[in-house]
Amino acid sequence: MASSEISLLLRPRGRPIKNLPESITIKREDTAEEIFRKIANASKLSIHRLRVTKGSDGSPLPNTTALTVHDTGLRNRSSVDVKDLGPQIAWRTVFIVEYLGPLLIHPLFYFGRPLIYGTSAPPSQLQTITLVLCMLHFIKREMETLFVHRFSLATMPARNIFKNSAHYWLASGLNLAFWSYAPSSPAARPSNPLITYTGVAMFLISELANLQTHFILRDLRRPGSTERGIPRGIGFNLVTCPNYLFETMAWVGVWLVNWSLSTPFFLVIAFVQMAAWAKKKERRYRKEFPETYKKKRYTIIPGVI
């Protein structure tokens, strides 16, 4: 009987990788994950820093236990290219840092009004409600990051954390807080109770619906797995990403409370990004589940986009 062991030839891609061996020996019945583990052990790099592609066609090798080495198409003396992606940071840590910005900045501007704006007047009722809504939103985000979300990728390049955090720290943090809590803000003026209560109700209902969609999306993926399924439930029969629909509605609710143009400014930036993600997700569902996925015409807002 032929030996089940095969040899894979390793080639560095991009910058040289210190300690990368010329080859590794592995069994055909080993999982694809074992390829990454052996390369990581030999090169003394974190497994998350490695991108491994087939030398024959450049297609990426998945770091998964769902495929065997034989299933990947690799055979004895096959070449694989190995790239060092550089220092990595956990996606969960990235999300925590992103949402921490508004949680720090909003109270700073709300309670620091005498120093920042030079006013001794207390915040208005609408400004107080704005603070409460923004804090609730980002505390919810942090709790979801810690206890709800499951990530298909464990890490991202550490340098990207500054770019990712800028959206939240600047657009929904500094921008939203500075204009919402200023003495000249529309939120400093007397309120229309009907509009205010409508905004608060829209915010709370949307946040709960958004949370429910996140639970649905979480349950599509088993712990430790990157496999996905087709989401079904609240909103998913209408649009591809109802979580983005409810996110949008929640921020419209905030706008109905504070009437500051900084709110739609942030929302437009966020909506453009969510629209791109939603279109990409719709394409992925159609590709992964061509026979079973019911195609959606609208990805975020029914009848609009």
Rank of each mutant, 00 (worst) to 15 (best):
S78V: 04
P193K: 10
G173V: 00
A166L: 12
T292H: 08
S46L: 11
K294I: 15
G112W: 06
L8V: 03
D57E: 09
L45D: 03
V254R: 01
A270F: 12
T72P: 01
P62R: 07
H167A: 07
E98A: 02
G112V: 02
T128I: 11
F289G: 07
L136F: 12
A187F: 04
H70S: 12
Q127G: 04
I105F: 03
I230W: 05
L100D: 06
K27F: 11
L8I: 05
P21L: 05
S7R: 14
E282Y: 08
Y197T: 12
W169C: 01
T263L: 06
I6V: 04
G101W: 01
V272P: 11
N258W: 06
T53Q: 13
R77Y: 15
N192G: 08
A187C: 04
V82L: 03
R150D: 08
I96R: 14
T31W: 00
F138Q: 01
N160K: 13
S225C: 10
Y99E: 04
D219R: 14
P186I: 03
L220F: 07
R228S: 10
I26R: 02
K287V: 10
R13P: 11
K54P: 01
G235T: 08
Y99G: 01
L9S: 13
P242E: 02
K163V: 14
T240R: 00
L208Q: 10
P60E: 05
L104S: 06
S124D: 04
P12Y: 06
R221S: 07
L267F: 10
N160I: 09
A275S: 14
G55M: 01
S46C: 10
L85W: 10
S23I: 09
L170F: 14
D57P: 04
H48E: 13
P123W: 01
Y168K: 00
M143V: 15
P123Q: 05
S43D: 03
Y181A: 03
A275I: 12
I6Q: 01
